[in-house]
Nucleic acid binder design. Structure first.
Length: 869
RNA sequence: GCCCAAGUGGUGGAAUUGGUAGACACGCUAUCUUGAGGGGGUAGUGACGGAAGUCGUGCCGGUUCGAGUCCGGCCUUGGGCACCA
C-alpha cells in the first residue's frame, strides 16, 4: 500500500503557517490560570545561528511546550541584545555602520528562529538598541544618580597609544592592541559606577533561597561576592629597632586571621598604596619606582594571574611597621599580588598560615613562624587548618576560632582595630568609551558639575546614521553632538559621550517582555509574569550577567516597579557547544580565524587530527584550541544546511539527544542521520497503524500477557519522560526512553482488536511525549490519528499506575559482590524466599561450596549479596 | 594564580538514593531484500581468553559486603576572573 512519505520541509512549513495564523503562542495575562514564564537568554545578533544557539533555544522551547501541555499559561518571548562591540568590528570590516549591520542580522536570525519552529510570542519582540527600549534604562540611571546609587570616580582602562582609543580586554592580545600592535598602556579616567556593593549582603543571602539554581552557579557567585569577616587594625611606621616616632604614619591592614598576627614576619602594600611614596627609603627608591611603574602598566587580571617568580613580583621598601602583637618591627614590602581595590590595599603577611605569603617569604628569604600547630602527618607548607595556637604568647593553647575571637577583642580593647566585613565584590563600572551602546544620560556643566539629563529630555538618542571609522566613537569625534545646555543654570554644557556597558540592557529585559508598549519601564503586568519560572542560558554567564541582573531586579523592586525579590526561580545552565578553531597569524600580529566549514582536516588512523588546510587555497592553517562556538573565533557551525536537509524537527531532536543539557558538547554532526531515521521510522509506524483502520475501545480487563506488557512499557515510558523533562531536565534520556518504547512497539505484531487498542494508546502517548521536542511531525501525526485539538494544546499523557504493576521482578544475586545469577521472583518477596531461589542456582552454590556464609545483604526486589569466606 | 565543572567502548552518551557498567544512538562487520540508493530488515560489536572466566569508568590511595557514584591527593580538558556577550 502506498504511504505518504515523511516530507519535513513541506510538513513543517504547513504546521508553522497554522501557528502563525492562529497566533498560537501569543500570551495574555490571565489571573485564573497558573502562569509559566520560560525565558532563554536573549541572543546577540551576530549574523547567523550556530549550534550553540539551537541547543539553547531548543531547551527553552521544549520546557515551554511541556509546561503548556501541563495546562499552564505560558509566556516565551524573544528579543535581541543588540548593542555591543562585534557590531563595531563588523562595521569597520564591511565598511558599513553598526546599526545597519545589526538590523540586517536581526532580520536574518529571526527567520532562522522561525524556521526552527520555536514557540515564541513574537508580538513582544524588541531590540535593545532602539530608543523605545533604552530610554527606560536612561531614566532608571538618572534616578539612581539622584539616589546616590550611581556615582563617578576614576578607574583604569586599556589605552592604545597609536589608535588613541580605549580597548576592551578582548582587544588586548599579549599586552598589545589587536589592530595597531602597540603596547597597551593603563590610563585612569573618570567613569560611572553602580553601587552593587550596597546589595552585597542581600545578593549573597538571596542565594540560599534559590533552591532550583545549580549549586555550581551559587558557589561561584558566593565566591565572587567573597564575603569575609575579619579585623582591620592600624600599624605604625617604625625604625629598624621598632621605635615609633610620635606622629608616625600608620597603615590599616585587613585580615581574616588576627589569631595568626604573632606569626607576621613582614607586611605588604599594594603598589598604588599612598604610603609607598612616603615610606620608601633613599636606598630602595629607584627599585621601588621602577616596580610601581611596571605594576601600573599591568592589568589586574595579569597581576593576579602572573606566573612569574614571586621574587620579581615584590620589592622591599626599606621601611618597617610595628607589630602591635609582638612589639617588634617587621619589614615592609610592596608586591603586585596585593590589590589596592580590596580591603585596605595592605596586608600583614603570615607565611606559616598562608601559602601565598609562604611562597613570597621563601622567594625573599624572609623568616617563617608557625602560629598553629600542624597535624603530625602534615606534609604541606603553609597550614590553614584548625589547630592549637603556638608561638603566640597569650593566645597559646587556644583553637583557631577561640584565638581569633580573643585577638579581635584585644584589638578592640586596645583601640587599634575593629571587626570588619569585607567583600571581594566591587562596584559595577558601567562606562564604555564606545559608540554602539546606550548613551549615558549625563550633562557636565562647568559651573554645576555632573547632572542627570532631565526626565522630559529623555531619551538621549544615539545617532545611527554616522560616519564610522572605528578608531574613535562618532559621539566623541563629533564636536556638535555633545553641545547642550545645563539643565540647572542654562549655561553651555556638554553631554557625556560614553555609553553603557551592554550588561545594562540584559539586566532588565526579562521585565520589559512582560510590559510591551508600557509608557514606563514596566507596568503591573510584570507582576503577573514575574519571577521567571525557568531561565535557560549558557554557563559562561554564571557570574557576571546572572549577578548583574539579580542586582538590577532588586533596584527595580526598590524603585517600586516589581514585587519579587529575585528575577528567576529555576535556572538551567546549558553547557557550551564547543568546536575546533583554525587560524592564520599574519606577520603584523593580527589573526584571522577560519570557519571549520572552510577547512579540510587531515587525520591519522586513530582519527586524531594531524593537520588542516584551507579549502580555498589548499594551504595549511594552524589548529587552535577547542573553544565555545563564537563570532570572535569564527568556529560556529551553521545549522542551516542541516535544517534544509533533514528539517527542523531532526535538528531539534539531535541537539537534545546528543548530550545532557548542562554538559559541554564537542560538535560533530555524525549522528544527525540517526535522529532523522528515528523520525522517519516513527512516521511510517504511526501511519501504518492509522492505515489499518478504526480502533476499538481498550478493555484492560481482557488483555493478553503480551498486550499487558506493551501497556506496561507505555506507562513506564510516560512516567520516565515526564520525570526526565519536568524534574531532571535530561532530555537525552527522555528521547532514549521513547526510542526504546518505539522499538518495542515496532516488534509488537498483534492485529487483534485489543492489540490494536493497546497500540493506539501507545502511539498517542508517543506523539504527545515527543511533541515538545519535535512539534511539527507530532502536530501532523496527532491530526492524522483523528484528534481534533492541536497537539500543542493537548494535555500531557497521564500515567496509569495499574498498567505498571509487575507480577515478577528480576533479582540480582551476587557472591562476594560479583554477579553470579539473576532469579525471577514475585515482587516484595522476603529474604528467605530470595535466598532459597538463589541457592537453587548452580552458579551461586558453586562459589559458596566449601565456604562459610558470613553475611547476607538483601535489598528487596533488587539485589542479594552473599558474603562467604 | 584563584573560583567552578568535566573525564566511562572506535564515537555521542546511559547507569536518578552506594547495588546488574556500557541503556539509547552513531560507526563498523556479516547477512538478507530484483538493480541503484545518505533505502529497509536481521545478527554481532568494551578488552583479553578456546572456554570457564578474568580485567575494565583519567591516575594513585582510602572507606564499604559492594564504588563510575563517597573521602584524600594528583593529572588533563573546558568555563569564569569584573571592557566579548
Amino acid at each position: 500500500m502506498d504511504q505518504t512519505p515523511y516530507n519535513p520541509a513541506e510538513l513543517e512549513t504547513r504546521v508553522q503557517a497554522r501557528w502563525d495564523q492562529d497566533k498560537t503562542y501569543q500570551a495574555t495575562e490571565d489571573p485564573g490560570v497558573e502562569k509559566f514564564y520560560c525565558l532563554s537568554m536573549l541572543p546577540y545578533p551576530s549574523g547567523a545561528l550556530h549550534m550553540g544557539h539551537v541547543r539553547n533555544y531548543t531547551i527553552g522551547d521544549v520546557i515551554s511546550r511541556y509546561q503548556r501541555m501541563l495546562g499552564k499559561n505560558v509566556l516565551q518571548p524573544m528579543g535581541w541584545d543588540a548593542f555591543g562591540l562585534p557590531a563595531e568590528n563588523a562595521a569597520i570590516k564591511n565598511n558599513t555602520v553598526p546599526a545597519r549591520w545589526t538590523y540586517a542580522n536581526i532580520e536574518h536570525m529571526r527567520e532562522q528562529f522561525q524556521r526552527l519552529g520555536f514557540a515564541y510570542d513574537w508580538s513582544r519582540e524588541f531590540a535593545t538598541c532602539t530608543p523605545e527600549y533604552y530610554r527606560w534604562e536612561q531614566l532608571m540611571f538618572t534616578r539612581l544618580m539622584k539616589k546616590g546609587l550611581a556615582y563617578r570616580r576614576n578607574s583604569e582602562v586599556n589605552w592604545d597609544p597609536v589608535d588613541q582609543t580605549v580597548l576592551a580586554n578582548e582587544q588586548v592580545v599579549d599586552g598589545r592592541g589587536w589592530r595597531s600592535g602597540a603596547v597597551v598602556e593603563r590610563r585612569s579616567i573618570p567613569q560611572w559606577f553602580l553601587r552593587i556593593t550596597n546589595y552585597a549582603d542581600e545578593l549573597l543571602s538571596g542565594l540560599d533561597d534559590l533552591e532550583q539554581w545549580p549549586e555550581a552557579v551559587k558557589t561561584m557567585q558566593r565566591n565572587w561576592i567573597g564575603r569575609s569577616e575579619g579585623a582591620e587594625f592600624e600599624m605604625s611606621v617604625c625604625d629598624r629597632q621598632g621605635v615609633v616616632q610620635p606622629g608616625a604614619a600608620t597603615v590599616g591592614v585587613f585580615t581574616t586571621r588576627p589569631d595568626t598576627a604573632f606569626g607576621m614576619t613582614y607586611a605588604v602594600l599594594a603598589p598604588e598604596h599612598p604610603l609607598v611614596v612616603e615610606v620608601t627609603t633613599e636606598a630602595c627608591k629607584e627599585q621601588i619606582n621602577a616596580f610601581v611603574a611596571s605594576a601600573r602598566q599591568t592589568s589586574e587580571a595579569d597581576r593576579t594571574s602572573a606566573e612569574g617568580s614571586l621574587e620579581k613580583r615584590g620589592v622591599n621598601t626599606g621601611a618597617f611597621l610595628f607589630n602591635p602583637f609582638t612589639g617588634k618591627p617587621v619589614p615592609l614590602y610592596i608586591a603586585d599580588y596585593v590589590l589596592m581595590g580590596y580591603g585596605t590595599g595592605a596586608i600583614m603577611a603570615v607565611p606559616g598560615q598562608d601559602q601565598r605569603d609562604w611562597d613570597f617569604a621563601k622567594a625573599h628569604d624572609l623568616p617563617i613562624v608557625r602560629t598553629v600547630e600542624t597535624p603530625a602527618d602534615f606534609a604541606g607548607e603553609a597550614y590553614t587548618g584548625d589547630g592549637v595556637a603556638i608561638n603566640s604568647d597569650w593566645l597559646n593553647g587556644l583553637g583557631v576560632a577561640a584565638a581569633r575571637e580573643k585577638a579581635m577583642k584585644w584589638l578592640e580593647y586596645k583601640g587599634i582595630g575593629e571587626r570588619k566585613v569585607n567583600f571581594r565584590l566591587r562596584d559595577w563600572g558601567v562606562s564604555r568609551q564606545r559608540y554602539w551602546g546606550c548613551p549615558i544620560p549625563v550633562i557636565y556643566c562647568p559651573v554645576c558639575g555632573a547632572l542627570p539629563v532631565p526626565e522630559d529630555q529623555l531619551p538621549v538618542v544615539l545617532p545611527e546614521d554616522v560616519s564610522f571609522m572605528g578608531v574613535q566613537s562618532p559621539l566623541k569625534a563629533d564636536p556638535e553632538w555633545r553641545k547642550t545646555q545645563c539643565p540647572q543654570c542654562g549655561g553651555a554644557a556638554e553631554r557625556e559621550t560614553d555609553t553603557f556597558d551592554t550588561f545594562m540592557e540584559s539586566s532588565w529585559y526579562f521585565a520589559r517582555y512582560c510590559s510591551p508598549g508600557a509608557d514606563a519601564m514596566v507596568d503591573e503586568r510584570a507582576n503577573y509574569w514575574l519571577p521567571v519560572d525557568q531561565y535557560v542560558g549558557g554557563i559562561e554567564h554564571a557570574i557576571l550577567h546572572l549577578m548583574y541582573f539579580r542586582f538590577y531586579h532588586k533596584l527595580m523592586r526598590d524603585a517600586g516597579m516589581l514585587k519579587s525579590d529575585e528575577p528567576v526561580t529555576r535556572l538551567l545552565c546549558q553547557g557550551m557547544v564547543v568546536a575546533e578553531t583554525f587560524r592564520r597569524d599574519a606577520g603584523d600580529g593580527s589573526t584571522t580565524w577560519i570557519n571549520p566549514a572552510d577547512v579540510e582536516v587531515e587525520r591519522d588512523d586513530k582519527g586524531k587530527m594531524t593537520g588542516a588546510r584551507l579549502i580555498a587555497d589548499g594551504k595549511p592553517v594552524e589548529i587552535g584550541s577547542i573553544e565555545k562556538m563564537s563570532k570572535s573565533r569564527n568556529n560556529g557551525v551553521d545549522p542551516r544546511d542541516l535544517v534544509e536537509r533533514y528539517g527542523a524537527d531532526t535538528v531539534r531532536l539531535f541537539s537534545m539527544f546528543a548530550s545532557p543539557p548542562d554538559q559541554s558538547l564537542e560538535w560533530s554532526d555524525s549522528g544527525v542521520e540517526g535522529s532523522f531515521r528515528f523520525l522517519r521510522r516513527l512516521w511510517f509506524m504511526v501511519t501504518d497503524h492509522i492505515a489499518a483502520g478504526p480502533v476499538e475501545a481498550l478493555d484492560t480487563g481482557i488483555l493478553t500477557t503480551e498486550q499487558k506488557t506493551i501497556r506496561r512499557y507505555t506507562h513506564d515510558t510516560i512516567a520516565k519522560v515526564s520525570d526526565d523533562i519536568g524534574r531532571r531536565q535530561t532530555f537525552n534520556t527522555a528521547i532514549a526512553a521513547v526510542m526504546e518504547l518505539s522499538n518495542h512497539l515496532g516488534r509488537f505484531v498483534d492485529r487483534s482488536a485489543q492489540g490494536r487498542a493497546v497500540l493506539d494508546e501507545a502511539w498517542k502517548a508517543v506523539v504527545r511525549l515527543m511533541a515538545p521536542i519535535t512539534p511539527h511531525i507530532c502536530a501532523t501525526l496527532w491530526e492524522m490519528l483523528g484528534e481534533q485539538n492541536s497537539v500543542v494544546n493537548t494535555p500531557w499523557p497521564e500515567v496509569d499506575d495499574a498498567a505498571r504493576v509487575r507480577d515478577q521482578i528480576t533479582l540480582v544475586v551476587q557472591v562476594n559482590g560479583k554477579l553470579r545469577a539473576r532469579v525471577e521472583l514475585a515482587p516484595g518477596s522476603d529474604e528467605e524466599l530470595a535466598m532459597a531461589a538463589a541457592m537453587s542456582e548452580q552458579n551461586v552454590t558453586k562459589y559458596i561450596n566449601g565456604k562459610t556464609v558470613r553475611k547476607v545483604i538483601y535489598i528487596p526486589d533488587r539485589l542479594l549479596n552473599i558474603v562467604a569466606t
